[in-house]
Computed example of a mutant assay.
Amino acid sequence: MYRIALQMLFGDRGKYLGIIVGIAMASIIIIQQPSILLTMLSHTYSLITDISLPDIWVMDPKVRTSEDSRALLDTQLYRVRGIEGVEWAVPLYKGSLTVRLGNGELERAIMLGLDDATLIGGPGIMVEGNLADLRMPDAVIVDEAGARGRLARQTGRPGEHGIPLQVGDTLEINEKRATVVGIAKATPTFQSQPILYTTYSRAKNYAASERKLLSFILAKAKPGLDSEAVARRIAQATDLAAYTAGEFKSRSLDFMLHNSAMLMNFGFVVLVGFVVGTAVTGQIFYNFTLDNLRYFGVFKAMGATDRMLLCMILLQALLAGLMGFGLGSGVTAAFAASTWKGNEMKLEVGLPLLCASGLAVLLIVLAAAFFSARKVLRLEPAEVFKS
């Protein structure tokens, strides 16, 4: 009986392909949109992700996300270093400065000023050059996406891509010279601005118009001590906010979710994809069942139980759903892979997202099978023979 059910499904190629395409389109929307949302949300704490060495981030109590920064007095650094349980603490400057390109155009870029002695907070992966080269005069390191994108040297010819920055090129930051000594990989920021790395003392020179420049204090708890307990101790002793890296990520993410409409917008698109997928797939599958209703009537007259007929319909629906979901997830994975060749947002399709999307597609398939099964289970065999 199951083989006959499959022959019925494959025999009507038009409706079979229609069901698969409908489920595939729903799968693409259900997988792709959450993937874009999760990628964008991960960029809200990209700075914390890239700077993985410190356990604790210390900042002004009014700072809400890693994209936000409020300057501290330099004396706060020494207070944090004196807290019991702190192994080391280093400064980090984070600010948005104006960069003048070779053709005179201006671009805003994020500058990170690293501790002069240790260079903690620097990029983990260098494409060209070395992190230690930041100690050279006027040295800066540029992230790869910025070097190939907004900071690239324009050719002046429409439609042509700019020439990526190379080691040895020069920039002008707030009317001061900067020499590119390295290209590094970095997670894009939420605003996708270029990222420049330099030393803390040199960042003071580039941002001389600002009175206070200490944006964050990066600290490490002594071995064997709980970083959360040390962070609470720092907060009590200094009246500053101190969070572990995980807490700071959660704080940044919560602020973005509660103060933007991204979750609602992407959720609405996913809901529309789910409803449309259910409607289209259910309608096509229902018409497929109606076309084969006489066969189900014959099976029922020959003694097939309702359970057997229901299993046949479920087999047809689940097989079509598996084919459609496989096609949709494959297309989405190929699209995500294509984004890794660019310089901006790189989509990731993880196993939890695929499992959740698969569950949503399963609900679509079961809904389609339910409406079709009702017609078959209520069918009287005599009606088939009368017609």
Rank of each mutant, 00 (worst) to 15 (best):
316 Q>A: 04
66 S>R: 05
316 Q>T: 07
63 V>P: 03
250 S>T: 03
197 Y>S: 14
174 N>L: 04
299 F>M: 15
165 L>D: 04
20 I>D: 01
313 I>Y: 14
109 A>H: 05
370 F>Q: 01
175 E>C: 11
285 F>K: 09
245 A>T: 11
154 Q>K: 15
269 V>A: 15
10 F>G: 00
330 G>T: 02
137 P>G: 07
100 R>K: 13
245 A>P: 04
335 F>Q: 06
161 H>G: 15
66 S>I: 05
263 L>C: 02
349 V>I: 14
190 F>A: 11
181 V>D: 00
359 L>G: 04
79 R>W: 02
131 L>Y: 10
293 L>N: 03
234 I>N: 05
347 L>C: 04
242 A>G: 09
109 A>Q: 05
382 A>I: 15
350 G>E: 00
76 Q>G: 03
115 D>H: 14
216 F>D: 08
283 Q>G: 03
379 L>M: 04
121 G>L: 12
292 N>T: 02
192 S>V: 05
50 D>I: 00
282 G>M: 14
279 A>R: 11
51 I>C: 01
121 G>N: 13
116 D>T: 13
145 A>E: 05
64 R>I: 00
376 V>A: 03
46 S>I: 00
198 T>R: 11
368 A>R: 08
140 V>W: 10
17 L>D: 03
271 L>T: 15
315 L>Q: 12
146 G>K: 08
304 A>H: 12
365 V>D: 11
17 L>E: 02
259 N>E: 15
149 G>S: 10
375 K>Q: 04
307 R>C: 00
167 V>L: 04
165 L>F: 00
98 T>I: 10
51 I>W: 06
143 D>P: 12
282 G>H: 14
376 V>L: 01
331 V>D: 01
269 V>E: 10
334 A>M: 02
377 L>D: 02
84 E>M: 09
305 T>A: 11
233 R>L: 11
132 A>E: 15
100 R>S: 07
355 C>Y: 08
106 L>P: 07
383 E>Q: 13
108 R>W: 04
222 K>H: 05
218 L>I: 10
